[in-house]
């Protein structure tokens, strides 16, 4: 009889021992760095200046007043506002078209997925060439049509749109693959039942069956695209360095320059917190609001 509680304790110890590697790696690799970043955001920590002083919310009040940060925030919102809807819509369109087709499915899937597996930094040079104002194929095509093409990446009017186009190119293929996975999970019989039930057009079958049953996939794709596009950094860093005149500076790029160019790590950590807050807000939106309106199997 006395053995029972002892054995239960032994089991508990065993369980903790088994989870220990995960607990340690979570603490060391995720929890502590995050807490360190949070703590740093309330200091004036600069590389080479020791010791850092606790300055409370000063970093955040500086952020609010900083026109450069406000511009970078607005740029990010515009970039996300362009990339997320277009790449989700295109991803869905590609997935539906490839699903509906009978020939060349593997080929088209590979073509659209290529941007996802290719290195953005390497592909950026290709984009730089494509969008070059004088020697770029895009502008020479426009010239042959009698249109004077803008300097895509070096004019502050077009730089964000150009970057957003590259972002769409990067994300649409990824979204397409996710949508294709979602589409295969929809039983074919449902679409057949819909056509027998009088859904004459492809659009009405999409409305009746495909779109509602794709709900969970769409929700996931939207969330992941928002988060991926907020994190835009490599194209900005390689192609424009935030320019011209900060017209393409985004949150992560500002964070990078503050932290690694000006070495103001405390200020940079404050920007990180803002970034983190936005991502958490999006996740909350997903679980609290959208999740309720989606049908799961």
């Amino acid at each position: 009889m006395e053995a029972a509680p002892k054995r239960r304790r032994g089991e508990a110890v065993g369980a903790w021992l088994l989870t220990l590697p995960a607990v340690i790696s979570f603490t060391v690799l995720l929890l502590l760095p995050t807490l360190a970043a949070v703590a740093m955001a309330f200091t004036d920590f600069e590389l080479g200046v020791w010791p850092p002083a606790w300055i409370g919310l000063e970093n955040f009040s500086e952020l609010l007043a900083d026109r450069g940060f406000r511009q970078s925030f607005a740029n990010t919102v515009i970039y996300v506002g362009l990339v997320a809807p277009v790449s989700v819509g295109l991803g869905l369109a590609f997935a539906l078209l490839i699903e509906a087709g009978t020939r060349g499915r593997a080929f088209f899937r590979a073509v659209f997925f290529l941007p996802v597996v290719s290195l953005t930094v390497a592909m950026a040079s290709a984009w730089q060439y494509l969008l070059h104002p004088t020697i770029g194929p895009l502008n020479s095509l426009l010239r042959s049509l009698g249109i004077a093409g803008p300097a895509w990446l070096s004019s502050s009017d077009t730089v964000l749109v150009s970057l957003a186009a590259i972002g769409v190119w990067e994300n649409a293929g990824f979204n397409m693959v996710l949508f294709m996975a979602g589409l295969t999970a929809i039983p074919r019989e449902l679409r057949e039942a819909a056509s027998v039930d009088g859904a004459r057009s492809a659009w009405s079958r999409f409305r009746l069956v495909t779109w509602p049953l794709l709900g969970p996939t769409t929700l996931f794709v939207v969330t992941i695209t928002l988060i991926r596009s907020i994190r835009v950094f490599d194209t900005v860093a390689v192609l424009t360095r935030g320019g011209p005149n900060r017209a393409s500076e985004t949150l992560l790029y500002t964070m990078y320059t503050e932290g690694f160019t000006f070495l103001r790590l405390g200020y940079s950590a404050a920007i990180t917190l803002v970034f983190l807050a936005i991502v958490l807000l999006l996740m909350l939106l997903q679980t609290r609001v959208l999740d309720k309106r989606v049908h799961y199997g």
Partner: peptide, 20 residues
């Protein structure tokens, strides 16, 4: 004719009800 214009009704083996 398209299935929708045939005026047939069908009960599928899996029933094929719209789950949502």
């Amino acid at each position: 004719a398209h299935p929708a214009r045939r005026n047939v009704a069908m009960v599928f083996q899996s029933y094929a009800l719209y789950p949502h």
